[in-house]
């Protein structure tokens, strides 16, 4: 081993110490989800589909998807669901308060896979949050892509996220936005009712030039993938963004392992051809 060569304290600081991010905007999105715009000491420099470890010192740390497209400034957008001890504390914070941020981590989406292609986004529930980091750059330059279709589904109208964005994206030339709820549950809703899988068979997908990016709950993948395969889309044309428990983000803590891959480093975005045969990936 190299002796006395490395400043381990500096390495520890670079690896595990969070940067301090200021919460500059909070928006209530649903009963459980809030939108957060953060200001970092310096740009994070993330790719679409990457995530960051978010923490409140003294409470804990968790992986959270980055929801904005790549950007040069030091702003960062996230949506955080109040679902555990840490996120409950985060929901109690106000604008002007701070969070710890480490990252960005993970593979992310590579826009080069999407340029010149018909792009289909399939988002189930919170899956829209990370996918938005890819949808934004695609919708910003529609001329660089073919037909763009976004299928976004959630449980009921009250749980729909990013309504303004969905409305705006539906007006982008060449873009189609399909909004669904599993059930209206007696709430007003002027879009479709059904599962995200329902509109897929009728979509005119060109098996040669279509690329799919999808993110949703584990139960969604099996049926959506069966439908896409029936439309002759190959596993190299499909990208999935997966969720796992993570404690470090750097491939050490072991929690996110699926078969031999680490979701935090090999993923969380995977080309289906890389994980289609793995028993633990899509379940």
């Amino acid at each position: 081993m190299n002796q006395g060569q490395t400043d381990y304290a500096a390495l520890a600081a670079a690896t595990y110490l969070p940067a301090t991010a200021k919460i500059v905007e909070i928006r209530e999105m649903t009963a459980r989800e809030r939108y957060y715009r953060l200001e970092l000491p310096q740009p994070l420099g993330h790719r679409p589909g990457q995530f960051a470890m978010v923490s409140v010192l003294g409470v804990g740390e968790a992986p959270i998807s980055i929801s904005c497209g790549p950007r040069d400034d030091n702003q960062l957008e996230m949506v955080i669901r109040n679902v555990g001890r840490l996120t409950r504390v985060i929901h109690g914070l106000k604008e002007g308060d701070t969070l710890g941020i480490r990252g960005p981590y993970g593979s992310g989406f590579d826009l080069d896979h999407f340029y010149g292609k018909d792009v289909v986004f399939i988002a189930g529930g919170l899956g829209l949050v990370p996918l938005r980091s890819l949808i934004i750059p695609v919708m910003a330059e529609p001329s660089r892509f073919g037909a763009v279709t976004l299928v976004s589904g959630c449980r009921n109208p009250a749980e729909e996220l990013f309504r303004e964005d969905l409305k705006q994206w539906s007006q982008v030339p060449g873009a189609t936005v399909i909004r669904l709820v599993d059930a209206t549950e007696n709430m007003p809703w002027k879009f479709d009712v059904g599962l995200v899988i329902d509109p897929l068979p009728k979509l005119p997908l060109d098996p040669v030039k279509t690329v799919v990016a999808m993110c949703g709950p584990p139960v969604m993948y099996k049926f959506v993938l069966m439908t896409l395969q029936a439309k002759n889309l190959g596993p190299e044309q499909i990208f999935v963004d997966l969720e796992r428990r993570m404690k470090c983000g750097v491939g050490k803590c072991g929690h996110c392992q699926m078969n031999h891959l680490y979701c935090c480093q090999d993923g969380p975005v995977f080309q289906l051809s890389r994980i289609g045969a793995l028993k633990e990936a899509l379940r």
Binding site: L57, G58, G60, E61, K247, C248, C253, G254, H255
Partner: peptide
């Protein structure tokens, strides 16, 4: 085996503390 969990510990003064990692097991 080296898998670990990460936890925070807040001191009684509520303004200081530490982040620690502890053994976890698959």
């Amino acid at each position: 085996c080296y898998c670990f969990d990460v936890r925070d510990n807040l001191a009684l003064d509520t303004v200081s503390g530490s982040r620690t990692r502890t053994w976890d097991g698959c």
